[in-house]
Every structure is written in structure tokens, then in C-alpha cells.
Design a protein around this nucleic acid. Structure first.
Length: 589
RNA sequence: CGGGGCGUAGCGUAGUGGCUAGCGCGCCUGCUUUGGGAGCAGGAGAUCGGGAGUUCGAAUCUCCCCGCCCCGACCA
């Protein structure tokens, strides 16, 4: 393959596009790989499409190797199946909806659980047909509230989604593991740095779930990994280990104190330390000694609203993402002025356990952070303006209605597996595998006959890879200040051959070199443009990011061609006659 | 949906009521140049996001609408 830059449909930009912030977006646009068509909607140009297809080919190859079978659904789907699983409603504004000329409702598929389930239902009816895994690589549509970062988060994107169908949980576990293994090989071949983290299964429902994240600063997902063991989890799924109960013997009885003008944790701590009668003997009070009670209004999918109070140590905020994940499919919003006005027992800034709990006068469900174990003593609200209660002991003086693990996760928190420090980082979600279970099979009545002739509901798994997103994630992980640096497996070409100079000699040698390499299966991007200055060609080659750059130019007089490694910058002069062999070796490595 | 920023040629931008909307990149023609985004000369390319209004006169002021970017909310 020879791509000639003299005729290639490509225009690189000297300036960064004004609307691109993250490196992958900036470089993919500057390098002429993609162009924006509409918010979150992009066109792949020739070089970009080559990279995209390489990524897609690797994903497909690994699926096929695993024994999975490819199908292809339409992107345009009817409303009915999504009505049956309630997702026509649950997906909300994110769903692209449209109508045909008769006024019938359609949608552009955001994901295809329903369609796969119905397809299998229509064809299979026996346990002998299972297990089955089918997949597709298809454009997905989600009307995101805020598309961002170029193709990293678009409204149209390509996803590989597969679905497994098994008769029992053991089978599902095996299908899940086959995907996990296939994903590991896939991302390794894509040349990506990735971590596998425990995840919440989210809106899809289901149980076991892991995400494949590409660590990078621009990632939208936060995750932790342990500094010593191999524990890793999305922050939404991090488990906070509960400390052992403390013996409260010797802690004075709870006592209410006047604490005027202390509606915040900070003012409360300051006042407690400033008052000699309240100060601790051994050390100053700090925010972690206080118990902060935050009230939310939770809206269930059926629209029913109920308040929920959560008690966390005062030095921690509640992480809204963790809260949302814990409350799925309910949605939480912080109490607003109207909510407070309707609940006179709640004194904003001074809410305490005394007014909370299902058996209390308010009847508000009250859940506690795992750190609030029996015997721990707290300073907390006394449910009257300007008053707090001191030495309130969990288990002795108050109890919650349960535990909820939604406080913010911080670097240095204890690993739930081994207790070492957790490290916090960000990543791009490039793959997600999870065991759906029977949610969709039940909703759409997918059953097969088992060995004893009884109808049993099939159990399913769902597994996605963001194919177009992976292109951007690779760009994000693999670039420098000059441009992109593609891993060879996904690069648009193996070598970027530059002919530079005036002489026909140089161009003639380069032509013959391009032919020879191409004949050996080396993919050549050939800068055969006449009259373009060397600086432009060098800069373009660095921007475009083909892994090996070969220059036929000045040193040809002495019989040499330069071979440069894009990533390391290392260059070597190779005698003309040896170049083909040297490059073949590099490409094969 | 809330907060902030912005919309002038393919790209990046200047221009706060007054001549024909300026510049750089890119593009076209000619000559020169050829190892780090070349030089000279000539040229094409703009309904100044859209609409309404104020005014003798609007890219510039007012109102409405549309769109983009960032942060938050939301989201496999």
C-alpha cells in the first residue's frame, strides 16, 4: 500500500482549532484525521478512517477468535421493544427519538440489549442451543447533555457490543470470563495502557461488572488502585472498610451545648476549640470529629419522592456520583428551601440524629457512613438553631436505619482488600463487561426448555468496547508536543517516507523504495510532494504520528537514507541498499 | 438545566457608531528557493451566526432566536 501525499485527501492545520481542548481532539483535527459535522458528530477522513478500521479489525479479530459470532442490527429501531423494558421512558432525553411519516415512534439505538434478546428469542428455544455469544459493531446514538472532547464523547459513536446467553449462572460466569480474556488481548494489541476496575452495573441492572479504563488526566471516570495489592475500582464502586467497634466506656453522657452561629462544620470546629469548657484535653477537635447530616430528596423511577438523610464524618463530602450509583435507579437532589420549609423538624445547619430515622418523629430514613461504627463519639446537630450535641455515641445514643457508602473517596484511604493506601486517578472508559442476569430475558420473555423439559429464563451478559472512543483514547495516551504517535498496529501506515530536495534523483530513489517496501507488504505513507519545503514535511510527519519516518534527502549523495523512530526520536543512517531489509525488520518487530 | 466564555474567509484572528472589513496561515498564477512550517510579485475567497429594531450611517448599540467551547448537573 502506498498513500501519496501529493494526492491524499488531507489538509493539516498549522494552528490548533479554537474549539479543541484535550490533546486527542486537537491533534486528530490538526492532523486531518477527523472533522466535526455537528456537536458530538464527526467525519472520518482518509487517514482517520484507516486508523479507525485498524482498531475495528483488531476488536473484530479478538471477538472471532473467542468464538463469538458477528451480526448487524439496524441503528434505526422501533419503539415497542424499548417500551417493553421501560427504557423508552427510563433513558429519558438521552434517547434520540424520531417519527416516520405515519407518526410511528422510532429511536436511534443507544445500545441493543432488547434487539439481541428478541433475536435470540425468535430463533432459539432449547438449552441445547446455549451457550451463545453474538456481537455487532455498530453506530450508537445518545443525545448527550454535553458532548465533549471530540470523539472521546460523541453523540454518535461506534461500539462493539456483545451479549451472552446462558442457561445458568455458571455458564454466565464462563461467558463473562471469555470476554474478560478477549478484552485483555484486544487492548494489549491496541497498544493501550489500561486497568480493570470493579464497577457498578449502572442503569443496565445486573450484578458482576468491571470496567476497562485507559488512565489519562482527561478521563471522565475516577478510579482508585491500591498501592500494594491489585485492588482497583471505579470510585462509584469503592467499598469503605468499616473500622472495628470502639468501647465507649468512659465517654461522658451526651450533652447539648450552645453553639451560636455555627451552621457549618468549619465554624463548629473553631468554636469547639475556642471554648475551654468544650475543648478536648488530648488534641484539638477537627472536622472528622463531627457528624454531618445531609438530607436529599430521592425520586424513584415511578415518580415517588421521599427524603433521605445521610450521616458522614464532617471532613468528608458526599460524592454525588457515588450516591447516584448507590440509589440507582432512583435520583437524588439536595434538599432545597421548599423541602426544608415543608419539614419544620429539620433545622438547616443543625440537623442531628435525634430528628432522623424511620422510627423518629420525622420518619425520615437515616443511613450512616460505614465509619460511624458503634462506640464512635461525635459532635452533631441538636435540631435547634445554635445548638449542637457533644459526646453522642453511635450505638449508645443513636442508630441509623442502615449503612450507605457514598462519602467521597480520597487518595490515601484504606484499601478494602489489604488496608494499604489507595491511589486516585482518572481514566477513559474503553470497555465494560457485566453480568446482566435475567432482567432483559424476563422483560422480553426469553425462555428455553431445559433438560427436564421445563421453561427456564435465560441469563445474559452484556459487553461493550467503545471502538471510536478507543481511537481517541489511544491518541490521548500516545502523543507528544509535536503530534500523535500511533502504535504500529493501529497506525495509518507503517512508515512515513519523505522525499526532500530538488533533485529528480531523490524522488526517483524514494519512488523505488516505496515500491519495494509496498511489495513486501509494508504500508507506506509517501510524501512525494514537490516544491514543499523540508520543514513542512518534517513537521507533518511528526504531527501525523506514523511510527517510523524514513527520509530520502540530503544524505543520499553519500548513499544514506535516514530512518527515524517517531516515539524515541532516535535516527540512524542506513545505506540505500540495506533500507528495505532494515525497515522490514523494524516493521516486523 | 445552572454558571462562565464566545460566534468576522477553509483555519487562527484584529476591528466598541463613520471611507471599499484588516492581518497571518492555507488556496490560485508566475519567478526564485529546497534539511525544520521559504522569498518576491500578482490574485481568488466574508449574506461579519440569523431575524427584528434604533440611527443619516451598524460587524460595532438594543431585543429575540440559533450555535459553539469550558465548568457543574446528567450520562455505557
Amino acid at each position: 500500500m502506498i498513500l501519496r501525499m501529493s494526492t491524499l485527501f488531507l489538509r493539516t492545520l498549522r494552528d490548533d482549532p479554537a474549539d479543541a481542548e484535550v490533546p486527542s481532539h486537537r491533534l486528530l483535527v490538526r492532523g486531518g484525521y477527523v472533522r466535526r459535522v455537528a456537536p458530538g458528530v464527526f467525519t472520518w477522513l482518509p487517514l482517520g478512517f484507516l486508523v479507525y478500521r485498524n482498531v475495528e479489525a483488531i476488536v473484530r479479530d479478538e471477538m472471532d477468535r473467542a468464538g463469538f459470532q458477528e451480526v448487524h442490527f439496524p441503528a434505526l429501531l422501533p419503539r415497542e421493544p424499548y417500551e417493553q423494558t421501560n427504557r423508552w421512558t427510563e433513558y429519558g432525553d438521552t434517547l434520540f427519538r424520531l417519527q416516520d411519516r405515519k407518526g410511528s415512534d422510532y429511536l436511534l439505538g443507544p445500545t441493543h440489549e432488547e434487539m439481541f434478546t428478541l433475536l435470540v428469542k425468535g430463533e432459539y428455544s432449547s438449552y441445547k442451543d446455549l451457550p451463545l455469544v453474538i456481537y455487532q459493531i455498530q453506530s450508537k446514538y445518545r443525545d448527550e447533555a454535553r458532548p465533549r472532547a471530540g470523539i472521546l464523547r460523541g453523540r454518535e459513536f461506534v461500539m462493539k457490543d456483545s451479549y451472552s446467553f446462558d442457561i445458568d449462572d455458571e455458564g454466565l460466569a464462563r461467558s463473562y470470563q471469555r470476554h474478560r480474556d478477549a478484552y485483555i488481548s484486544t487492548f494489549q494489541r491496541l497498544g493501550m495502557d489500561f486497568v480493570i476496575v470493579s464497577a457498578m452495573s449502572g442503569a443496565m441492572g445486573g450484578s458482576a461488572s468491571e470496567e476497562f479504563l485507559a488512565p489519562t488526566e482527561v478521563g471522565e471516570d475516577s478510579f482508585v488502585r491500591c498501592s500494594s495489592c491489585d485492588y482497583a475500582a471505579n470510585v462509584e464502586a469503592v467499598l469503605t472498610p468499616a473500622p472495628s467497634p470502639v468501647d465507649p466506656t468512659g465517654v461522658p453522657a451526651a450533652h447539648v451545648e450552645q453553639t451560636p452561629e455555627t451552621p457549618t462544620i468549619e465554624t463548629l470546629v473553631d468554636l469547639s476549640n475556642a471554648r475551654t469548657d468544650l475543648a478536648r484535653a488530648d488534641r484539638p477537635w477537627n472536622a472528622g470529629d463531627t457528624l454531618k447530616n445531609v438530607v436529599f430528596m430521592v425520586t424513584a423511577p415511578d415518580g415517588v419522592r421521599a427524603p433521605l438523610a445521610i450521616g458522614v464524618p464532617g471532613d468528608r463530602e458526599i460524592d454525588m456520583k457515588r450516591l447516584e450509583a448507590a440509589l440507582q435507579p432512583g435520583v437524588a437532589a439536595v434538599f432545597d428551601e421548599n423541602d426544608f420549609a415543608a419539614r419544620s423538624s429539620l433545622v438547616k445547619g443543625y440537623i442531628g440524629p435525634g430528628a432522623l430515622g424511620e422510627t423518629s418523629s420525622s420518619g425520615i430514613r437515616y443511613l450512616l457512613d460505614p465509619r460511624v461504627v458503634d462506640g464512635t463519639r461525635w459532635i452533631t446537630g441538636a435540631n435547634e438553631p445554635g445548638r449542637h450535641v457533644f459526646d453522642l455515641v453511635a450505638g449508645r445514643d443513636f442508630t441509623g436505619d442502615g449503612v450507605i457508602d457514598v462519602a467521597e473517596v480520597r487518595e490515601g484511604d484504606a484499601c478494602p482488600e489489604c488496608g494499604s493506601d489507595l491511589l486516585l486517578a482518572r481514566g477513559i472508559e474503553i470497555g465494560h463487561i457485566f453480568q446482566l442476569g435475567r432482567k432483559y430475558a424476563e422483560a422480553l420473555d426469553l425462555k428455553v426448555l431445559d433438560e427436564s423439559g421445563r421453561l427456564v429464563t435465560v441469563t445474559m451478559g452484556s459487553y461493550g468496547i467503545g471502538v471510536s472512543r478507543a481511537v481517541a483514547a489511544i491518541a490521548e495516551q500516545s502523543h507528544d508536543e509535536k503530534g500523535l504517535i500511533w502504535p504500529r498496529e493501529v497506525a495509518p501506515a507503517d512508515i512515513h517516507l519523505i522525499a526532500t530536495g530538488k533533485s529528480d534523483e531523490v524522488f526517483g530513489v524514494a519512488e523505488r523504495l516505496a515500491d519495494a517496501l509496498s511489495a513486501h507488504g509494508v504500508r507506506v505513507l509517501f510524501d512525494d510532494r514537490r516544491g514543499v519545503s523540508p520543514g513542512v514535511k518534517f513537521n507533518d510527519s511528526e504531527l501525523l504520528g506514523v511510527p517510523t519516518i524514513v527520509v530520502v534527502g540530503k544524505r543520499l549523495e553519500e548513499g544514506f537514507v535516514e530512518v527515524k523512530d517517531r516515539r524515541s526520536g532516535e535516527r540512524q543512517d542506513i545505506p540505500v541498499d540495506d533500507v528495505v531489509e532494515v525497515i522490514r525488520t523494524i516493521v516486523a518487530a
